[in-house]
C-alpha cells in the first residue's frame, strides 16, 4: 500500500473513532435518564421528599432531595470509573495526574464544579419536577455554549458546516423544549424550578466541556475524568451534604437507607451509564474537538426520548418528534464533514 492511501486510511480511522466514541456517549447518556427518573419514586428518596416537603415546602424539598440523589450518582460513577481505570491499568497515571494540580488537575476540579452542582443537579431537578424526556432535551443547548467558549478561549476551529449542524440541533432542541412549555403556559401551571434545572444542565455541561478541554490537552482522558468525578464527590460529600445536614435537613438518616436492593441496583445502573457516557465523551474531544464531540453526543436527547418511550410507554408530542429529527439531521451534517479539515483542530 502506498503512503498516500495509508495516510488517508489512518486519518479516517482516527476521525471515525472520535465520532464512534461520541455516538456511544449519546447512547449511554440517553439510557441514564431511565434510572435517573425511576430513582425519584424509590425509597428512601420518595420518603425524603415527602418528609422535607412537610417542613420546608415542595420546592426546597425537591432541591435537597436532588442533592442527595446527585451525590449518590457521583459516588456510583466514581466506582464505575475506578473499575474502568483498573481494567485499563491506569492507576499509576491517575496518581501522576492528580499530583500535577497546578498545570493540570485544577482544570478537572474546576470542570466538576460546573458539571456536578450545576449540570447534573439541574438535570435531576428537571427529571424530578417535569420528567425525564424534558430533562434530556432541555440540556440540548449545551454544545452551543461549549463551542463558543472553546472558540473564544483557546481558538478551536469550527467549520461552517459544523456551525450549521449545531444550529439545526439547537432548533431541534427548541422544538422539543418549546412544545411542552407552550401547553403549560396556556394552562397557567409552569413548573419553573424544573425549567431552571434544564437551563442549569445546558449551561453547566457547555462550560464543563470547554474547561475540561483545557486540562485534556495534557492529560489522559481516563485519568482526567476520574479526577473530575473525584472533585464532584468532594463537593457533595465533604461540602454540600454536611452543610445541609448542619442546616437541619435529614441527609444522613436517608443516605443510610439506600442499601435496599432495588435502590442500589438503580443507582449502580445510573453510575455505569453515566460513567461510561463521560468516558466516551472525554475520549472524543481530542480526536474530533470539543464542539463536534458535544454535537454528536447531543443525540443523547433523541436516544433518551426513545428509551423513555420504550421503557415507560410515554408517547412524545409531535414537537418532540420534529425536534428529534432535527437533532439527527444536524448531527449528520457534522458527521459527514470532510476529514481533511479535521487533521489539525487548532490554529497554530
Amino acid at each position: 500500500m502506498d503512503l498516500k492511501t495509508l495516510k488517508k486510511q489512518e486519518s479516517k480511522r482516527k476521525i471515525s473513532k472520535g465520532y464512534m466514541w461520541a455516538l456511544f456517549c449519546a447512547i449511554f447518556w440517553g439510557i441514564w435518564y431511565l434510572p435517573g427518573t425511576v430513582v425519584w419514586v424509590l425509597n428512601p428518596f420518595d420518603e425524603m421528599y415527602a418528609t422535607i416537603a412537610e417542613v420546608s415546602g415542595d420546592g426546597m424539598s425537591l432541591v435537597v432531595t436532588a442533592v442527595l440523589i446527585t451525590a449518590f450518582n457521583a459516588l456510583t460513577v466514581m466506582l464505575a470509573l475506578m473499575l474502568w481505570n483498573g481494567v485499563l491499568g491506569k492507576y499509576g497515571e491517575l496518581g501522576r495526574t492528580l499530583k500535577e494540580f497546578h498545570p493540570c488537575s485544577k482544570w478537572f476540579f474546576l470542570a466538576s464544579i460546573f458539571g456536578g452542582p450545576m449540570a447534573i443537579l439541574g438535570s435531576f431537578i428537571a427529571m424530578g419536577f417535569i420528567g425525564g424526556a424534558f430533562a434530556a432535551v432541555a440540556g440540548l443547548l449545551y454544545p452551543v455554549i461549549g463551542s463558543i467558549l472553546a472558540y473564544y478561549w483557546y481558538g478551536e476551529k469550527i467549520s461552517k458546516r459544523a456551525v450549521i449542524g449545531i444550529g439545526i440541533i439547537v432548533l431541534g432542541g427548541i422544538s422539543i423544549y418549546g412544545g411542552g412549555l407552550l401547553t403549560e403556559l396556556s394552562s397557567g401551571n409552569v413548573p419553573w424550578i424544573g425549567y431552571l434545572g434544564g437551563l442549569m444542565a445546558a449551561a453547566g455541561w457547555g462550560i464543563e466541556g470547554a474547561i475540561a478541554g483545557k486540562g485534556l490537552d495534557i492529560a489522559e482522558p481516563d485519568a482526567g475524568l476520574t479526577l473530575r468525578f473525584l472533585g464532584e464527590n468532594i463537593i457533595w460529600w465533604i461540602i454540600i451534604v454536611p452543610i445541609l445536614a448542619i442546616l437541619g435537613f435529614p441527609m444522613y438518616s436517608f443516605a443510610f437507607q439506600v442499601f435496599e436492593p432495588l435502590t442500589m441496583l438503580i443507582l449502580v445502573f445510573a453510575g455505569l451509564t453515566f460513567g461510561f457516557c463521560y468516558v466516551t465523551w472525554y475520549k472524543s474531544f481530542p480526536l474530533i474537538g470539543v464542539g463536534r464531540g458535544q454535537g454528536i453526543g447531543n443525540l443523547y436527547g433523541f436516544c433518551a426520548v426513545i428509551f423513555i418511550f420504550l421503557f415507560f410507554g410515554d408517547i412524545p408530542d409531535w414537537t418532540i418528534i420534529v425536534g428529534g429529527l432535527l437533532c439527527i439531521t444536524g448531527s449528520f451534517i457534522m458527521f459527514t464533514e470532510d476529514s481533511s479539515a479535521l487533521e489539525t483542530l487548532r490554529g497554530e
Binding site: L3, L6, D217, P286, L345, E348
Partner: peptide, 29 residues
C-alpha cells in the same frame, strides 16, 4: 497519547513513512 497531542495542536505531524522493517508496527504509518 502522541496522536491526541497532535490533534490538540501541540505537535505537528511533519512527515510519514511506511514501517517496512517493523520497527514499530509493520505495514503501519
Amino acid at each position: 497519547d502522541i496522536i491526541e497531542l497532535a490533534s490538540g495542536g501541540m505537535l505537528k505531524d511533519l512527515e510519514q513513512k511506511v514501517d517496512e522493517s517493523g520497527i514499530y508496527k509493520k505495514g503501519f504509518l
